[in-house]
């Protein structure tokens, strides 16, 4: 509860502030709070990822971007009413959606009755791996994980092409004049 209150406070800060440097730092704080929430929910590996990607690497990348641009957000050119309405409506729909979810940790939900018991009972017998998350990710659902790695690979290659492609053009000869 304390964590969620802090999350809300940080979010309000991000929305209110116009100095992008402060916004980036608040974003890092937000990620750390989110990682703490994940630890409370017993998802330690997600927390680890969130802390190092969200708070660490992506904050640094944001700061590197700020170094290349200006660090003050420009004034909005239109009224914030329509975006506000869209955000509130989407939030309301999501909150209504949570009412239909089963209570947290309930044993008779589809997530806990379908294949999960098989994994829990047979992971050691099949793979000798006590951590079921690892055996599900890497062995039972190896295809999914291969797909995930391919997604990371594709995203990385795409970003590299975008960032590096321009650098090769820059130091080259001046752009030829348009012929008439």
């Amino acid at each position: 509860m304390v964590l969620l209150t802090l999350l809300a406070a940080v979010t309000l800060g991000i929305v209110r502030l116009r100095n992008l440097f402060a916004v980036v730092i608040l974003g890092g704080i937000y990620s750390f709070l989110m990682a703490s929430v994940m630890i409370v929910l017993d998802a330690v590996d997600v927390a680890m990822t969130e802390a190092s990607v969200g708070a660490g690497v992506s904050t640094v990348l944001m700061l590197a971007t700020l170094y290349l641009t200006k660090s003050q957000e420009s004034e909005p050119t239109h009224t914030p009413l329509l975006p506000l309405f869209v955000a509130v409506a989407t939030g309301a729909v999501l909150v209504i959606g949570t009412f239909a979810l089963p209570p947290f940790g309930a044993a008779d939900t589809p997530a806990n009755t379908h294949v999960a018991p098989y994994y829990l009972e047979n992971s050691i017998r099949d793979t000798l791996v006590p951590n079921v998350v690892t055996s599900v990710l890497a062995s039972y659902r190896g295809f999914d994980t291969l797909g995930e790695v391919t997604v990371i690979f594709t995203a990385g290659i795409a970003v590299l092409m975008l960032l590096k492609g321009r650098r090769q053009v820059k130091p080259g000869p001046k752009r030829p004049r348009i012929r008439r």
Binding site: A64, F153, V159, L163
Partner: peptide, 19 residues
């Protein structure tokens, strides 16, 4: 793959401003 991708993106981001 994960290490390579993250570090490669970091290198190309930070290396941009130095020309």
């Amino acid at each position: 793959t994960v290490t390579g991708t993250l570090v490669a993106i970091f290198y190309s981001f930070v290396g941009r401003g130095r020309e």
